[in-house]
């Protein structure tokens, strides 16, 4: 009988140990959230925050205008929570490297209430990110649109002449997010 008691407490010990591992791994899943940002930083993997700088970028040292031309494409997405239309005036632009260009975006609030939004930029291919300079961008600030209001939103940019040679076309993509999600007021969409 003593052997049996032994086995039972041994089983219980193993069970507890394994349960601890299980719970620990459940915790590890959540620990991945901060760990992930940290790992991305130390290994030089760009996180979303780094890829989508929303402040004016430092203008690259090389300011001369070169003879090389590239195509810049403009892409826009609106998050489903935001009842806005948002689009660039043109789909693409041929630009000379180093030259300062401007593109107008038009945003329109389809609902009848005032809503706060923010555009998050990203550049594809990501290798071109460091060479795309935004001198002035609507994405630097929160944007507010009153009910049914529409607004022109300018972007002034240049592409640095140091852009790697294998890149002949790049896309700047904006994703407009809703900011006042937490005090979410119900809105009614009145326009298409």
């Amino acid at each position: 009988m003593a052997g049996e008691q032994n086995l039972q407490s041994k089983n219980r010990r193993t069970l507890l140990m394994l349960s601890a591992i299980t719970l620990g791994m459940f915790g590890f899943g959540f620990a991945m959230v901060p760990l992930y940002c940290f790992l991305c930083q130390i290994t030089g993997v760009q996180s979303v925050q780094q890829r989508t700088q929303t402040t004016a970028s430092t203008v690259a040292a090389n300011q001369s205008v070169s003879d090389r031309w590239v195509t810049v494409k403009f892409d826009s997405t609106v998050h489903p929570d935001l009842p806005w239309n948002f689009q660039a005036q043109e789909r693409k632009l041929r630009v000379r490297l180093g030259e300062v260009n401007e593109m107008d975006f038009i945003a329109e609030n389809r609902s009848s209430s005032e809503i706060l939004g923010q555009a998050i930029p990203s550049v594809v291919p990501w290798q071109a990110n460091a060479f795309f300079n935004k001198m002035e961008c609507f994405c630097f600030r929160q944007q507010s649109l009153k009910g049914l209001e529409s607004k022109h939103m300018p972007l002034r940019f240049s592409v640095s002449p140091d852009l790697p040679n294998d890149i002949s076309s790049l896309t700047i993509s904006y994703n407009f997010m809703r900011l006042d999600m937490n005090n979410e007021k119900p809105f009614t969409v009145v326009a298409k």
Binding site: L18, M25, F26, F28, G29, M32
Partner: peptide, 14 residues
């Protein structure tokens, strides 16, 4: 299984 399934459980919980 006990090392990886809890991580999936955490992911779908998030």
């Amino acid at each position: 299984l006990i090392l990886v399934v809890p991580v999936l459980a955490g992911g779908v919980t998030m």
